[in-house]
Design a binder for these strands. Sequence first.
DNA 1: GCAAAAGTGTTTGAGGTACACCCATGC
DNA 2: GCATGGGTGTACCTCAAACACTTTTGC
Lengths: 213, 213
Amino acid sequence: MPYTYEYPHPAVTVDVLVFTFQAGELKLLLIQRGRPPAEGMWAIPGGFVNIDESLKRAAWRELNEETGVHAAYLRQLGAFGHPDRDPRERIITVAYLALLPVDRLHIQAGSDAMDARLFGLQKLPELAFDHAKILRRAHERLRQNFADASTALHLLPETFTMSQLRRVHEQVLGETLDKRNFSKKMQTAGLVAPTGEKQKVGAHRPAALYRKA
Amino acid sequence: MPYTYEYPHPAVTVDVLVFTFQAGELKLLLIQRGRPPAEGMWAIPGGFVNIDESLKRAAWRELNEETGVHAAYLRQLGAFGHPDRDPRERIITVAYLALLPVDRLHIQAGSDAMDARLFGLQKLPELAFDHAKILRRAHERLRQNFADASTALHLLPETFTMSQLRRVHEQVLGETLDKRNFSKKMQTAGLVAPTGEKQKVGAHRPAALYRKA
DNA sequence: GCAAAAGTGTTTGAGGTACACCCATGC
DNA sequence: GCATGGGTGTACCTCAAACACTTTTGC
């Protein structure tokens, strides 16, 4: 108990919103809390920032602990610090946004979690603390970041079909996009290159595969 | 000395980047530090977050202490938390971006400042701590926010000329803009309305005044 | 009258949007 | 053969960009 200060200090955590794209849906990684407060509730994964660790480094550590991932699109979303957002003590959290392809993601429930799962954004459980607010801000931010169309590529595997890429955009923007216009735009923008391969799934014409250009 | 914790806690501050537009230039409010560390150096105004105060509220308090202003455009820029960014102890700061018209700004050097002044962005002194880094991020963010052309209006007084508005944009974007195209865009976007008044200054044709529409 | 900033229209090109039919496959 | 999603081209329109001369004022 040796850490003493002249003035009260808040605790600082990082929370990482891990988004990926699976089964035609944009999904978010949540953990089920294994201890109080909010035990049993679903929450955005995160943890305390070590005293000699940068915020970004703490975010990488948390991301790695939950997913095994070392490299990904990782951006700071912002700080959330309402005085009563956590019942234990004053906790300020810095939220990060991570985008990564589902095939690189190996979900591991951290030591203080009962479970960890991906949830479609339309099928989310009730979230602990102020995490619903953080998620709303993340979603707004995603929409902004998708103005740069290359952002979506971080959510997909090495190769992907044009429909998959289009569905990522559609789900983030919350509107449907024209197939022809979308494909034209991606190609003339030089964002994707055809691999020459095709992907056969289901009772329909195979789809051409593309890679990030 | 009564504040003890089981684990070390960082201190948390808010810093407020106050931008305004004066004498044809985009300016930033800086304070000259009146005590160590970095005594005598110029810095972005800020201070510690009270333990029962939200981040936003702390930012408003700091803004008000330095400028007397209660209402302004105030947005969170982000958190900066390198472990060695302050020599005293681990301090994480949450930076805010404020835009306000110069005629509402009443600069008051806070209690721990020797001086407070506006600086043109091209004529900045060397900044304390990691404040140059924070400023770079603020400038990037300003450029992004100016994609919404109405943002610039927060920097100008109630009435203004088209040239003033154009110069705000030019300085944030770092490029010159075509007079005719700019004026057309502002008016067809419905962002400004002519007041009917004119402003006579200097040996040239008077400029029409506009207000926010 | 001259210097200094304000004011004003037209043309062009690029990119975004709307829109409908045939193709390859599995069952 | 039929259901399913994949793939393709054209016409239109909107908006951004380029561009030069006249006007009003103070000195």
